[in-house]
Deep mutational scan, measured.
Amino acid sequence: MTEYKLVVVGAGGVGKSALTIQLIQNHFVDEYDPTIEDSYRKQVVIDGETCLLDILDTAGQEEYSAMRDQYMRTGEGFLCVFAINNTKSFEDIHHYREQIKRVKDSEDVPMVLVGNKCDLPSRTVDTKQAQDLARSYGIPFIETSAKTRQGVDDAFYTLVREIRKHKEKMSKDGKKKKKKSKTKCVIM
């Protein structure tokens, strides 16, 4: 069974824990209790493949930012979460993405942009803004509501699919490099 290491990042209060708990335990946590770091595991079937999701729910508070490099190193894919009623959390996505790329030393890291709290009427981040940002990053965008469960499975499952595509691409690139290195030079 394939294991996928997913990391949920975003500013404090955007609903990272609520999304994760909704996926794992099928219930909505409405009281806000700032996370330092929590880890969850769940076995699911995605596109006919049974897999184990190892999900790291991270601290959004700035005082825990020193811990970010460590979990970013171990993560295979990242859910970059903002709240649709919090423009600052949307603007912060850029910083999370840049930090992930720096730590992973790669421009090509599996990510999904997630606009959470889409059940709320007080939207300050337009869907088109988020779609445009995701398009500019070359990553999928999904709106979710941890409260109603809308888009929750889709967000995590899409990230797994992005990781699969990335692994497939990397193995193809690896095979191309191996083929090239088999060419021999004969000096007579």
Rank of each mutant, 00 (worst) to 15 (best):
E162D: 04
G77P: 00
P34G: 07
K128M: 11
I100V: 03
Q43V: 06
Q43S: 07
M188L: 11
E98Q: 06
E162V: 04
R102V: 03
K169M: 12
V8P: 00
V114S: 01
R123T: 13
N26H: 05
L79S: 00
A11H: 03
T35D: 14
N26T: 06
V103Y: 15
G174Y: 01
K5A: 01
V7C: 12
R41D: 09
G75N: 06
L52R: 12
T124C: 11
C118Q: 05
T50E: 06
C51N: 10
T87V: 09
S39F: 04
E31H: 10
K180E: 15
M72Q: 06
S17C: 03
I21Q: 15
N116P: 00
K101Y: 01
E62A: 07
V14G: 06
S89R: 01
G10T: 00
D119Q: 01
G115S: 06
E63T: 06
L56E: 13
T127C: 13
K104D: 01
Q61Y: 04
T144L: 15
E63N: 11
H166Y: 13
S136R: 10
A83C: 02
G60R: 08
S39W: 05
Y64I: 11
K175R: 07
I187N: 15
Y96C: 09
S106N: 12
D108Y: 08
K179N: 15
G75W: 07
T158C: 06
Y157V: 15
E63A: 03
D54L: 02
V160S: 01
F82H: 06
T148M: 14
K178N: 14
M111N: 00
E3I: 06
F90P: 12
K165H: 04
V45I: 12
Q129S: 10
V9N: 02
I36T: 12
G60Y: 04
G10C: 02
T124N: 13
V14M: 08
A155P: 08
E62Y: 06
L52H: 15
K16S: 05
D57R: 04
E91G: 03
E91C: 02
E63K: 07
D38G: 12
I187P: 15
H95L: 04
D154M: 09
S181L: 03
L133N: 01
I93N: 10
G13F: 08
L159C: 04
G48R: 06
K182T: 13
I21P: 11
V7R: 12
D154V: 08
P110E: 01
V114Q: 00
V8Y: 01
E91L: 01
M170G: 06
L23T: 09
D92I: 11
H94K: 15
V44A: 10
G13Y: 07
V45E: 09
Q150R: 11
F141I: 13
K182N: 15
Y4N: 09
V152A: 07
L56K: 14
K176P: 06
A146G: 12
F28G: 12
C118F: 09
Y32N: 11
E63F: 02
A11T: 02
S145G: 06
G75V: 15
A83G: 15
V8Q: 01
S39A: 08
Y32I: 11
Q150V: 13
